[in-house]
Design a protein around this nucleic acid. Structure first.
Length: 570
RNA sequence: GCACCCGUAGCUCAGUGGAUAGAGCACCGGACUUCUAAUCCGAUGGUCGCUGGUUCGAUCCCAGCCGGGUGCGCCA
């Protein structure tokens, strides 16, 4: 007998439905929201009663008479309008937790059909600092990559950085005329931003600067060696700055193919699309129209400007073509903000017209708003830098720990502070439904109390402390002895990890996992208050040690899927 | 004008057809000679924007409306 309680009960229920002559598709079982209604419940009888226009309680009784859940659940009761309520038996909990303890995957099955997934996220712009607006794509994308890999998918992460664009005319002009090498060495992006802003300001009043900056851009695009070298250096310097933050965030990419990688593909792509009749000229520009799609009927995508220049949409289409040719992925996932929904609708529709069959998904997320409830945008100049947020988070965590833990080496203190501070920032993002817009607040991102990463980490630390203090390990073969409700709740929660992780990818919602881990930590904290571990009688002690050990493993593992680490002390 | 997202406790948010809608923060009352109190236990707090519809059952699905955000032919 293997699988989660939900699977096992579901299988048994489907057997009973089949035997009773009902459609087994209706045989779904879910965890009960309320303990009074058992641990698991099914509303199959009510669904079937609707279809057959008959009495749900009678159907429930029919199902019950054919249902064999011996060894798993007590005989279910029919309740309310026709619910079947299951209550897991102690023997089942014991054997299921034994299996969990022996399973390195903690019960989580791999995907039935492993996919090759190209995952596009983060994508900062060169010569600009990453700000809090980049947080969601970066953290969400990394988390989805971790979870997809754990579930057995092949994932290629690609950071599609903004390394090409009109801003380089200004940056190159500034570089040539008033670059401060020392400042560049100190903080490359700050210096590049200064150059950009300086030139921008000069252009407002100086015709010549505007003209020369534009010429620098044209020279760059034409392959001028000097400008190309400057451009390349700005890209590398920027990347090094980004890597500091990615390092702090514990995030790595397999590929870093920026927009510039597709420059040579843009003109041929446009010609091909025009030749195939997918794109046609309109008012001097080359456009893709969507007459077959009502929502896009009035919204063509421009892929070549009337001056011959290419756009964002062109690069994205060329990027898809390259990715398909190069990696042959089953799916491409874009972790990009909701404001770009229309853009992706257009791009994906164009892909279908081109005959592309890969599963293209825009994993949209809500915007981070400023105090005025307007989207925080780069040009507002009011942006809070991502680096500032991360450093502030680590600072706050460091103060908190220093006040509680004495005798830590500076290195240990720093390591814990990073684990706690960065974890708090990541959790604040991941624990929230991705569609929700929210107003940026330091307090929200840096909170260390309540439903936060430190709360989950604390549960883990308490467990490690038990094992340190008791100088024991858990016996994975120990029998689970349930004597009080807190133990039972914890045991069932542990089994539900396997039911939770795969659901995250159904709609790309890490907050489902975050919420589960919060509930697990909460359940453990209650258990911790109610159930002494080390002082318990030998059999109970062994059982509680095993429950604790499993909790620690799942907390640590679940947090690692969110990209968050666990300290041993805090 | 068209399209997408959102509207749930004082505040911030979970909850995408099931039973009496949940957390955190804030506020109030308890629990540290105890395995880490970054914790636990309890109290207070709701016309789930409004109106209809579908359903045995709707915060959830459908229609309309109100309110907020965002996007929409030559930025990325």
């Amino acid at each position: 007998m293997s699988g989660t309680p939900r699977q096992i009960l579901g299988d048994r229920l489907r057997d009973a439905l089949k035997a009773a002559g009902f459609d087994p598709v209706r045989g779904d079982v879910s965890a009960s929201a309320d303990m009074r209604f058992g641990d698991y419940q099914s509303n199959a009888a009510m669904v079937l009663a609707k279809e057959k226009k008959s009495n749900p309680r009678q159907i429930a009784a029919d199902i019950l008479s054919r249902l064999d859940v011996r060894g798993i659940s007590a005989a279910p009761e029919v309740a309310g309008a026709g619910f079947l309520n299951f209550r897991l038996e102690s023997e089942f909990l014991d054997s299921a937790l034994g299996a969990l303890a022996a399973d390195p995957r903690l019960g989580v099955a791999t995907a039935k059909i492993p996919q090759k997934i190209l995952l596009d996220f983060s994508s900062p712009n060169v010569a600009k600092p990453m700000h809090v607006g980049h947080i969601r794509s970066t953290i969400l994308g990394d988390c989805l990559a971790r979870i997809a890999r754990f579930l057995g998918h092949e994932v290629i992460t690609d950071n599609h950085i903004g390394d090409w664009g009109t801003q380089f005319g200004k940056v190159i002009y500034g570089w040539k005329h008033f670059l401060d090498r020392e400042a560049l060495a100190r903080d490359a992006i700050a210096e590049l931003v200064r150059l950009y802003r300086e030139v921008n300001r000069m252009e407002e009043t100086d015709e010549v600067v505007r003209r020369v900056a534009r010429e620098e851009l044209v020279k760059l695009q034409a392959g001028d060696a000097e400008n190309l070298a400057i451009w390349k250096e700005t890209v590398e310097l920027s990347w090094r700055e980004f890597e500091k933050l990615y390092g702090l965030l514990d995030i790595r990419f397999d590929e870093r193919l920026g927009e510039s990688a597709y420059n040579d593909a843009l003109a041929p792509l446009c010609e091909e699309l025009q030749r195939r009749g997918i794109a046609r000229e309109s008012e001097g520009a080359l456009c893709i129209f969507y007459p077959g799609i009502p929502a896009l009927a009035e919204k063509p995508a421009i892929i070549r400007k009337s001056d011959g220049g290419f756009l964002y949409a062109t690069t994205d289409l060329a990027t898809i073509e390259y990715r398909l040719k190069h990696w042959r992925p089953d799916a491409i996932w874009y972790v990009v903000g909701a404001p770009q929904a229309l853009h992706f609708q257009q791009i994906f529709a164009a892909c279908r017209m081109m005959g592309i069959e890969a599963n293209l998904v825009h994993i949209a997320f809500g915007s981070i708003l400023g105090e005025d409830r307007k989207i925080m945008k780069t040009r507002s100049g009011e942006n809070v830098g991502l680096a500032e947020v991360l450093h502030e988070a680590v600072d706050r965590a460091r103060k908190m720990i220093a006040a509680r833990q004495e005798g830590l080496t500076p290195e240990a203190l720093e390591s814990i502070a990073e684990t706690i501070g960065i974890g708090a920032v990541k959790y604040a993002e991941l624990s929230q439904n991705r569609h929700t817009d929210y107003v940026f607040s330091w307090e929200k991102l840096l909170a260390l109390d309540g439903n936060t990463a430190p709360y989950l980490q604390n549960a883990y630390v308490r467990i490690r402390s038990i094992f340190r203090r008791g100088e024991v390990g858990a016996d994975p073969g120990a029998a689970i002895r349930i004597s009080v409700p807190a133990e039972r709740l914890l045991a069932i929660k542990l089994l539900q990890y396997a039911e939770t992780v795969p659901v995250v990818l159904e709609d790309f919602r890490p907050n489902i996992l975050a919420n589960f881990l919060y509930e697990l930590a909460n359940t453990y904290h209650s258990f911790y208050e109610a159930c002494p571990v080390l002082k318990a009688e030998p059999e109970v002690r062994a059982s509680r040690l095993l429950l604790s050990e499993l909790t620690a493993r799942i907390l640590s593992h679940g947090l690692s899927l969110l990209g968050i680490r666990c300290p041993e002390k805090m």
